[in-house]
Amino acid sequence: MDYRTLGCSGTVVSDLALGTMTFGAETDRDGAFEQLDTFLAAGGTFVDVADVYAGGVSEEIVGAWLAARPADVTERVVLTTKGRFPSGPGADTDPNGQGLSRRHLTRALDASLRRLGVEALDLYQTHAWDPLTPVEETVATLDSFVRAGKIHQVGLSNVTGWQLQKFVSTAEALGITGPVTVQSQWNLLVRQTEFEIVPAAEENGLGLLPWSPLGGGWLSGKYRRDSTPTGATRLGENPDRGMEAYAGRNAAEQTWQVVDALQTVAEGRGASMAQVAIAWLRAQPQVSSVILGARTTGQLRDTLVAADLDLTVSELTALDTASDPRPADYPYGVPAVQQRSRKIAGGR
């Protein structure tokens, strides 16, 4: 396992993180404990939670695991959770039960700390943009959490490029704590993140925390062209959930170009497709840690092998070419290329 800093902060994390969205939903307590033990035994340190996962049960499971392990184990854990969405009894009907307001975030953070059984979090992330709350209120609230010793660093999740920049610029203008990371979906099938989010993060020194590195299972080789999902997959077990999105991705020729390229690289390296897909993300210089999600410990063990898989330049190029997001035109087509390649008159 390699280790990197969380963006421009001094906090060091494993470059693979354990996501816990399945805990309490698709993975029971014993299975979650086994995943956490397996992850730490492999050198992992970064555990990603959210208050909305299984209605707070995910945080409770991680908290119970922390309480049941010796201090020399738990002190290695770098813990992060998120707040923004309704979580807990009655939250859906409470007008202030969601968002990035001071009122909601204060309550959400305190509830997360209680469920996790910790006094402070290494990283606290806004789970999404809130169009109702002024950014000034949100960043001031997050800064107050840092000053109170409840959190150490601030992160963003599921924002656009301009939203990321507004958070950063507002915090800088106020002279208070700003974000050090941004968590976004990024994988070989979702590279539109590179249009604005990745360069905005790089410009401001934020580390990327990609989620869904396997594209909902597509990059693990679970699905086959023009065939209905069956068996031990989310769509196979629950075909009514997500079939419209499945059909759209199945019909896109580029999906299968990416899958074919991934399979070729995997076969050449004697690795699984999932391992290669994760290794591609690890190779991106802006990435602080790739968030792994698994329903079973067996799935987790397979993806953890990616920690030791370094792709060659030719392998990365083959995957980049197959997965090129190919924007239509304005503003991400030719104009964007021109902006990135301006030449000085008379120069080279």
Rank of each mutant, 00 (worst) to 15 (best):
D308W: 11
E26A: 05
L206Y: 05
D30E: 14
S272P: 15
V49L: 04
D130C: 05
P89K: 10
R147C: 04
Q263L: 11
R234C: 03
G298Y: 13
G178T: 01
D51F: 02
P134D: 10
R282H: 14
G346K: 06
A32W: 03
V57M: 15
R348N: 15
L292A: 03
F195T: 09
E136T: 08
N204K: 09
T297S: 07
H152L: 01
T233C: 07
V47Y: 03
T233E: 12
A247F: 09
T126E: 01
R249G: 09
P239H: 05
G88L: 10
V78R: 12
D130A: 01
D143W: 00
E172Y: 12
T11Q: 04
I151E: 01
L40V: 13
Q299I: 09
L36H: 00
V265H: 06
D324T: 10
S220T: 14
G31N: 02
L309Y: 13
G117I: 11
G44I: 10
S157L: 02
E244N: 11
L36W: 01
R103I: 10
Q257N: 12
P131E: 11
Y3F: 13
A345R: 04
A322N: 09
V198H: 00
A232W: 04
L281V: 13
E60Y: 08
M21F: 05
R249C: 15
S112K: 03
W211C: 07
D324N: 15
F145W: 01
L209E: 01
G97R: 01
R84L: 11
L164F: 02
I176M: 05
I278A: 09
T126N: 02
R224Y: 12
A322H: 07
L319N: 05
L208K: 01
K343C: 02
L281N: 05
K166C: 00
Q35S: 14
A251Q: 11
E267N: 15
G155P: 10
E253L: 12
Q257A: 06
S101P: 03
A277E: 08
K166S: 11
G44L: 04
A274P: 08
P229K: 07
S323W: 02
E237P: 04
F167R: 01
V265E: 06
V52T: 11
P199L: 02
T193H: 07
Q183W: 10
G10V: 08
D15I: 00
G242M: 08
E237W: 12
G161D: 04
E119D: 15
D92Q: 14
G242P: 11
E194L: 10
W162K: 08
M273K: 06
A266Y: 11
A140N: 02
P131Y: 13
